[in-house]
């Protein structure tokens, strides 16, 4: 009987670790995107990855890790707050830039062909 509990606990911690690792990886990808993308309106999309999937995975992993306790309820509250506030904040930033007259770069943005580069 004790064996089952041990295995279940192990699986729970493994699942929690995998979810948190996935969330941290998505967060890193979002940060790289914020640093790498060429335009303000494009960077918003990269920041959106951090706000959504990374949050879901990290908080989900922490909830699985802590089990049915008060901490997991608080973590769920944190997730709800982030889910309510982050799209509003993102929309506020984008709308302020749009109203201030910042023009997005449209069309196709591609890296220059190797033969057009100086060292190519």
């Amino acid at each position: 009987m004790i064996e089952w509990g041990v295995w279940l606990d192990l699986a729970r911690h493994g699942l929690a670790g995998a979810m948190m690792l996935a969330g941290a990886c998505f967060m890193l990808i979002g940060s790289i995107g914020v640093l790498r993308l060429p335009d303000f309106y494009a960077r918003i999309h990269a920041a959106g990855i951090t706000d959504t999937l990374a949050t879901i995975f990290l908080l989900g992993g922490m909830i699985v890790e802590s089990g049915l306790t008060q901490t997991s309820a608080k973590l769920a509250l944190v997730g709800m707050l982030l889910f309510l506030t982050s799209p509003t904040a993102t929309h506020a930033v984008a709308n302020a830039a749009h109203k201030a007259g910042l023009k997005p770069r449209l069309g196709t943005i591609a890296p220059p062909h190797p033969r057009d580069r100086e060292d190519g």
């Binding site: 948190m20 969330g23 967060m27 979002g30 940060s31 914020v34 303000f40 960077r43 918003i44 920041a47 951090t50 706000d51 990374a54 949050t55 990290l58 908080l59 922490m62 890790e65 802590s66 973590l75 944190v78 982030l82 982050s86 904040a89 993102t90 930033v93 302020a96 830039a97 201030a100 910042l102």
Partner: peptide, 26 residues
């Protein structure tokens, strides 16, 4: 380069800080 880039970065930094605080309490 723009003000809005910085605001976006501060907002994103805050989200990361919230998640980091949760992890740190673990």
């Amino acid at each position: 380069p723009q003000l809005y880039d910085r605001v976006l970065a501060v907002n994103s930094f805050g989200t990361k800080t919230v998640l980091f605080l949760c992890l740190f309490s673990f």
